[in-house]
């Protein structure tokens, strides 16, 4: 094996054998951490809401209606993005680059659509974040999930560019699979938000 002679500024010197799954595990740990931030905020939201309801008050200010349609559309959009991301990985593994690009592009479009959907929900709510403690919590929970969505989109976009550059094809689709782990966990976190915030209200 070659001796270690590179500059100390280099990340690592000796060429090492292929180490699979590094990105998988890193993405899984990062996804779990990110999801826990959202879930912990959701737990506080649910606790405060239960306290309000137990005290005979409404969960949100009385004149505010939390619309169900944008929440459901958001869930549907993210579910479709899960299918397109799985399609992207399948295509990459089969060296089907045109379909892989299309699937990655569609996934990012669905991610953007989800952000637009949430922005539309905020517009419909007509609720200032500072007007009520529950309003602030609602924006904190959904906002934290939006941040997670943006991070997931960036991860998929970076891996998408690597695929465009020809680095992630054939059996070597680990980067995109790692991005997919983060994406799926983001969708699961939204599942908890969707049920806790929009469905049970």
């Amino acid at each position: 094996m070659a001796a270690a002679t590179a500059s100390p500024l280099a990340v690592t010197t000796p060429p090492e054998p292929r180490r699979p799954r590094v990105l998988y595990f890193g993405a899984a740990f990062a996804a779990a951490s990110s999801a826990l931030v959202v879930i912990s905020m959701l737990a506080v939201y649910l606790q405060r809401r239960a306290e309000n309801l137990a005290g005979g008050e409404t969960a949100l200010p009385e004149d505010v209606v939390l619309p169900l349609t944008p929440g459901n559309m958001g869930a549907l959009t993210l579910l479709m993005s899960a299918v397109t991301l799985a399609w992207a990985i399948y295509s990459l593994r089969n060296d089907d680059r045109p379909h892989a690009y299309m699937a990655i592009g569609l996934t990012l479009v669905f991610g953007a659509a989800f952000i637009v959907d949430t922005a539309y929900l905020y517009q419909q709510l007509l609720l200032s974040p500072t007007s009520d403690p529950m309003a602030g919590l609602l924006y904190a929970v959904t906002g934290a999930h939006l941040v997670m969505t943006v991070v997931a989109m960036l991860f998929v976009a970076v891996m998408g560019f690597q695929a465009l550059g020809g680095q992630l094809t054939g059996r070597d689709a680990e980067g995109m699979s790692a991005a997919a782990i983060y994406w799926y966990v983001m969708i699961a976190a939204y599942g908890a938000v969707w049920y806790g915030v929009y469905i049970t209200k």
Partner: peptide, 10 residues
């Protein structure tokens, strides 16, 4: 740590 971070953001 992420739970603490979530609570700290709040």
């Amino acid at each position: 740590l992420p739970v603490l971070a979530g609570l700290s953001v709040l």
